[in-house]
Design a protein around this nucleic acid. Structure first.
Length: 484
RNA sequence: GGGGCUGUGGUCUAGUCUGGUAUGAUUGCAGGUUUGGGACUUGCCGACCCCGGUUCAAAUCCGGGCAGCCCCA
């Protein structure tokens, strides 16, 4: 390890503004993940995996209710199948991992480990879809994908293998396909805001930045504490591009053959990293209560002369709070102070201290992880109070994140001010024209910032404004920032 | 993509320049005293990133690899 002497301490020793160091410490010390023998691939430890399961369950529930069905396709994609859609292949080839051998014998055709499953799925879709009665076909799979990136990997945020959902839906008309976007992005936004407490900038990608093989891409962009933007869930409308490459056709009501229209969409384990980074602080992890695997921890304060009474009360409290995810920390080998610090580091939203004084007064002490505020609460009103407090924490984390995002987006009318905004580690909101040359120039002039996306009302709001690069009429207002 | 730094018990670390029995802390395990913000104590377990070279002898020197971190694009 890099010889940082304080690193052996149990708590986080880095300030949040030394982002990389701080983030690594949170990740390791809060037992979220660990490095493995495979470069760029992490082990998700129980806490982080439990959070992923919650995200997955919430999204999955909403998808199913909407009629999207889960399927599972192979991990492997034969080279021939992978390389049918030119633009798509080109986007992914540099990062594809290949299986070339089985035991000692070389395979006749090498197999790609899926970087995404369009190609293998659509090969089947073309067989499954015959008539307009087969449509829409809305499928989804929860799986892992591998993209062998050469940029240096960062736990959760950029790993070579990650987990995600990949929705793949097929429609008879463009209108129907495009109408799905509101539902998909609405679902992701709902889960991000109301569970992860993360607001985002939602909009269309520019043509330059869209997904390889898509007609257009809608993305959710998050602002990280160190001022870099990072892309979260996305939705791609593929038009008939893949349908033509993979021959996904159907007979319409008039008996005529037509190519189908398709969408794809995803949310990945990167969101864990985004959430850890945005909410956490100097003392360690901070988790929104709705996503936290443990919502409250009860720490009994035991003295020899009052041991039994305190334990009885602690167990009573556990019982009263059985509708929440509660942990009663009965470990004898650590003092309360140690436990306080440990559970703060691990991000448990609420701590409940139960000691001899509390037994006398028939109360317990509640401590919020996000603010550190302590409050004594009567045992009889505890359950209601805990419920309210967890809600308050959830809301206040979202509010805080919203405030940070709002403060992090600044309008800029000319190149000079764009550069200034970018240098101050913020996102610039900039009038631009559609020209790719202007976008390239902008990146060059701003010191590496790119178009993140264009909000849905970005075109309307550009009226009367001029492109910051070429000075001609602006087509839209775009979010521009350095990205992770 | 470019540059820099670092790999020693589970974790952190001394030792590397100047080759010779590997330092200490912490965790863990067993015991005792403790417990309202990281307790104390006794005992025990446990390590030189990998491959090659130089040498009587390599954690240390040389070459190559792998891994992690930081900075810049």
């Amino acid at each position: 390890m890099a010889g940082r002497q304080e690193k052996d301490e149990k708590g986080v020793t880095a300030e949040k503004d030394e982002f990389s160091e701080w983030f690594t410490q949170i990740m390791l010390k809060a037992d979220l993940a660990d490095y493995t023998a495979v470069s760029g691939c992490i082990a998700f430890r129980p806490t982080s995996y439990a959070i992923w399961e919650k995200i997955r369950d919430e999204v999955d529930k909403r998808f199913k209710k909407e009629g999207i069905k889960n399927v599972y396709f192979p991990l492997f994609i034969p080279e021939k199948v992978l390389s049918k859609e030119a633009e798509h292949v080109e986007g992914f080839t540099p990062e594809v991992a290949w299986v070339t051998h089985a035991g000692e014998s070389k395979l006749k055709e090498r197999l790609a480990i899926r970087p995404t499953s369009e190609t293998i799925m659509y090969d089947s879709f073309s067989k499954w879809i015959r008539s307009w009665r087969d449509l829409p076909m809305r499928l989804n799979q929860w799986n892992n994908v591998v993209r062998w990136e050469f940029k240096h990997p960062v736990p959760f945020l950029r790993t070579r293998e990650f987990l995600w959902n990949e929705g793949h839906t097929v429609f008879a008309s463009k209108e129907e396909a495009e109408a799905e976007m509101d539902f998909v992005i609405g679902t992701y936004d709902d889960v991000c805001r109301n569970f992860l407490a993360l607001p985002s900038l939602i909009g269309r990608k520019s043509d330059k930045e869209k997904f390889a093989g898509a007609e257009y891409t809608v993305s959710m962009e998050f602002l990280m504490p160190h001022g870099k933007a990072i892309q979260g869930p996305d939705f791609h409308h593929d038009g008939q591009i893949f349908a033509k490459a993979y021959d996904i056709t159907f007979l319409n009501e008039e008996g005529k053959k037509e190519y189908a229209y398709q969408n794809t969409f995803a949310i990945t384990t990167r969101m864990l990293g985004v959430m850890f980074a945005i909410h956490s602080d100097k003392n360690g992890l901070v988790l929104p209560p709705r996503i936290a695997p443990t919502q409250a921890v009860i720490v009994p304060i035991l003295f020899d002369d009052s041991r039994d009474e305190v334990l009885t009360l602690a167990r009573d409290v556990e019982e009263k709070l059985s509708k929440f995810e509660v942990l009663l920390d009965l470990r004898e080998e650590h003092k309360p102070g140690y436990k306080f610090n440990e559970w703060e580091l691990k991000g448990v939203p609420l701590r409940i201290e139960v000691g001899p004084k509390d037994v006398e007064r028939k109360e317990v002490v509640l401590v919020r992880r996000d603010t550190g505020k302590k409050e004594a609460v009567k045992v009889r009103s505890l359950a209601a109070k805990v419920e309210r407090m967890l809600e308050e924490i959830q809301e206040s984390l979202l509010e805080k994140a919203e405030k940070f995002l709002r403060a992090g987006v600044v309008e800029a009318k000319d190149l000079l001010s764009v550069e200034k905004v970018i240098r101050s580690k913020k996102i610039a909101f900039v009038p631009l024209c559609r020209g790719v040359e202007c976008e390239d120039m902008l990146k060059y002039k701003s010191g590496g910032a790119k178009v993140l996306n264009i909000p849905f009302d970005g075109e309307k709001r550009a009226k009367g404004k001029t492109c910051v690069v070429c000075g001609k009429k602006a087509d839209y207002l775009a979010y521009v920032g350095k990205s992770y």
